[in-house]
Write a protein that binds this DNA or RNA. Sequence first.
RNA 1: GGAGGAAUGGCAGAGUGGUCGAAUGCGGCAGUCUUGAAAACUGUUGAGGGUCACACCUCCGGGGGUUCGAAUCCCUCUUCCUCCGCCA
Length: 423
Amino acid sequence: MLQLQLVREHQNEIIDALKKRNIEAAPLVAKVLQLDEERRALQTKLDATLAESNKLSKEIGGLFKSGKAQEANLLKAKTGALKEESKLLGDDLNNTANALQDILYQIPNIPHASVPAGSTDADNEEIFKEGDIPVLIPGALPHWELAKKYDIIDFELGVKITGAGFPVYKGKGARLQRALISYFLDKNAAAGYTEMQVPHLVNEASGLGTGQLPDKEGQMYHVGEDDLYLIPTAEVPVTNLFRGEMVDQKEFPICYTAYTPCFRREAGSYGAHVRGLNRLHQFDKVEIVRVEHPNNSYQALDGMVDHVKDILRELQLPFRILRLCGGDLGFTAALTYDFEVFSTAQDRWLEISSVSNFETYQANRLKLRFKDEQGKSQLAHTLNGSSLALPRVLAGILENYQTADGIEIPEVLRPYCGFDKID
RNA sequence: GGAGGAAUGGCAGAGUGGUCGAAUGCGGCAGUCUUGAAAACUGUUGAGGGUCACACCUCCGGGGGUUCGAAUCCCUCUUCCUCCGCCA
């Protein structure tokens, strides 16, 4: 959520910047300013009424003490009217404040200056590319065929147990997946991220804190009976650890990592691009989350990008980094870098990580603050990134490492797997 | 599941109807002392709204109520703690 003060002071810059998202924000911003003005007018009125009533109450107290009960009772009659008035004003104020918040919830984060204009993923800007695209054996297979051939992932079995998008990993497939999780967590820990285990269901306040709610309810599985949501990413529980917190700026940088399964309803997806592991309702992911001083957050973002790069280098997967254009940028992010691995057998790039700086957008909802040098409380910056999402990394490994007599395991994963080939 | 107790500022912890936005301690900040640091001492220090700045208003877990007046009394919800029972 944007800070109200920012909207008040920089409305034109905001409207301009949001054009990069292809959003005509002028009506929303105008509405915000109008409601804000109404709110302040009501607040002033209410404050005056309450001040008057407070003053009378004090007088009454004094009169009772000095035994002038009659005079006191006269004043009492006055306060009744004030009370009624303040009740009405309070209701109006609440309604206006709620309406204002509803509008603010509809305005996405302001894109960073470096975000390119554009409307679809075709407009994303490739800023880095590394790794050789392997030449595959004749008759190379996509991962869903390989999964069947080596009996390591069973999609039909998942359909029986749950439904489409819930695969069952078997034998070496399961082991490879667990190896990846351990490897990612170890890499993150070595880079200074503290490992956390967090709940996989969150309450409504957490969903609001990181921006999944309101509006994107449909993306999350909801457990109606207990009013809880299955997490779509560890970002939600991990970032919400800081909801309502006042952190000491000496604690910066705050770096956490967590492995969780992720649950996404992904309504409306279909077609060849969602085959196999490409798009699932349940998948595993190791996430990194940082809370930073505003002065350092972009440096931190670069550090996170370098960290993910490092992992992909070790896995020896060809990858590229995209700077997302305004149209493809997530609602709450100011700047996002997507990592994509080239899947040779599918002949396409697969998104395997997304690293973002949210600046104060999440922190404003979370009320995540720190005390600056002057002792004033300030909103912190939050960042997160996948490090990494499992299924497409798995797909990339299976497809790029296939040979005539089996799938090689990347060197770095062998100690974790306990085997060096799937055959 | 049963029976009790509790929720106050960054933290700990007083406060049972007006003089309480709230004692005290710790922490933070500024200063004195010191070559520097620590210790000690002095001052300062809750959050949000509002204002050019003041004034002023709101906030003592959430919501509602009683009262001229609520951190304080009542109802309700949530959470935590203790004891008992059950249990991976």
